[in-house]
Design a binder for these strands. Structure first.
Lengths: 262, 262
DNA sequence: CGACTAGTTGAGGCCAGTCAATGTTGGTGG
DNA sequence: CCACCAACATTGACTGGCCTCAACTAGTCG
């Protein structure tokens, strides 16, 4: 676990102290920039709402934050105050255990809302680190909670957001608990593929935003195992891989890896 | 996975069709039995509430359900309508994947509230099966949601309930992703120990309510591995084990298994 | 260029899984 | 009461998948 420090801090050569960056950007954007037409996050939170409620959501989004690759949006232990809707870019969330071990808990793309782990607690339970330059909308949670009290439909949407997070984690538990390495990587690639498709990108050709080590951390594998599996999948004609560029050639066979253990 | 059927159905020789049992008990209790002093679940949902709100919660609990060992409270795919507060007994929740694999997702004790996985979705995502005779209070979710709209404090308590569920699953992910077999079983035993203590029982001497196979399923291990670990822990003087009776002799050493990988 | 990070590949070892035999427990019925 | 059975548990021998350690390549940035 000697390489753990990299994941843990998420720092890179171009890293700038988190808080300072955030503060500056908050000030720049305070009160001026809004997200009146943030279609992406609308998908889940404002579904089925009337114009007034949608306006209330937009009013709540007073701030945007820009992060550069490697920068941290929030850390475990940070006071929870807001959810964040990803406008562009992507990030990972990382869990830290007391003894210094860490694990990637998820990868998050535009349109997704992160920070949900802090709801109901006072503090965040994980760290969010940008995998590339990214931009997020700040959704002050007290505003959302208030709206949820006024509007049953919005309340339901908020519950659904949490529910999906629970479902996602449940899926990961199944993966970590019952699948072998091959199935884990296949699941991972199919999941990415589907999410890229949902965003309107190609579902069979995409660029990974994370290292082999980060993939391994997410899947409970070592980086060498991930690398070997990529090579093997390529050798077997399932996909083409060149560094972080992946082209799924035979999605059916990839899916078949999951359906039964043959 | 030939033994999967047992876990999957959770049936035993004394099993009675779930729905019938539930219906009968619903009728018996309808409107008559309430849980006005259900101290256990109060711990989390009614903390900090005024008398009126507490009355509203109690009014919502019109029904109790009694289950016998092996019976199912709800299945994956069942329409979600209520949360359930465990009054007595314990149960497991089981995840099923498309290809027939299953995995125990959690063990639940008196005072805990289950069914949260259905919030925000229309249906439950897992199956809850009694590990021994048990009794639960039904908490119709629509009533809770309505109360949550009226009372900000209750809303927060409800959010906290979901938050804890997320935190629990996150912990399990760390366990499955980064720990070896020894650490997994140690974590499991310490977790049980702490929960028994919280219920006022001995934290160092308790009876497991689940089989080795179920423990293994929860921890991502095979039953033989679990059995071997119990034997080894006993040989090393960490605990005494006789079937399902466990006595923790050296909790400090058990904890040390987790702190670092020595 | 040199330093560094990311990725690939090989050799070998170990932990946990698999297969199999046997022991234990609890409930049932003769 | 005992014999029987099924479910649960223990233990051993063996296997194999993933980890570990290590060498090497490619790309990037100062």
């Amino acid at each position: 676990m000697q390489a753990a420090a990299t994941l843990q801090t998420g720092r890179s050569y171009r890293d700038i102290p988190t808080v300072r960056t955030r503060t500056v950007l908050r000030e720049i954007n305070q009160g001026q920039v809004k997200c009146p037409t943030c279609k992406l996050q609308d998908r889940c939170l404002s579904e089925g709402l009337d114009a007034e409620a949608i306006r209330a959501i937009n009013d709540a989004m007073t701030t945007r934050i820009r992060l550069r690759k490697g920068e941290t949006l929030f850390r475990a232990g940070d006071r929870f105050a807001s959810l964040y809707a990803i406008r562009s870019g992507s990030c990972k969330t990382v869990l830290l255990s007391e003894d210094g071990h860490d694990q990637v808990a998820g990868y998050h793309m535009p349109g997704e809302i992160i920070g949900t782990d802090g709801i109901g607690a006072d503090v965040h339970g994980c760290q969010a680190i940008a995998l590339e330059d990214m931009e997020v909308c700040v959704l002050p949670f007290e505003r959302l909670a208030a709206l949820s009290r006024q509007n049953g439909r919005f309340q339901h949407n908020l519950h659904r957001l949490l529910s999906r997070e629970l479902a996602r984690e449940r899926g990961l538990m199944m993966l970590l608990g019952t699948m072998d390495a091959e199935q884990r990587l296949a699941t991972f690639l199919l999941d990415l593929s589907q999410r890229y498709r949902a965003l309107g990108y190609s579902s069979c050709e995409f660029v990974l935003r994370m290292t082999r080590e980060e993939i391994g951390s997410y899947l409970g594998l070592k980086l060498e195992t991930v690398s070997r599996l990529f090579s093997r999948f390529q050798r077997e004609g399932l996909l083409q891989v060149q560094g972080r560029e992946v082209k799924l050639l035979d999605q059916i066979s990839v899916k078949r890896l999951l359906t039964c253990s043959d």
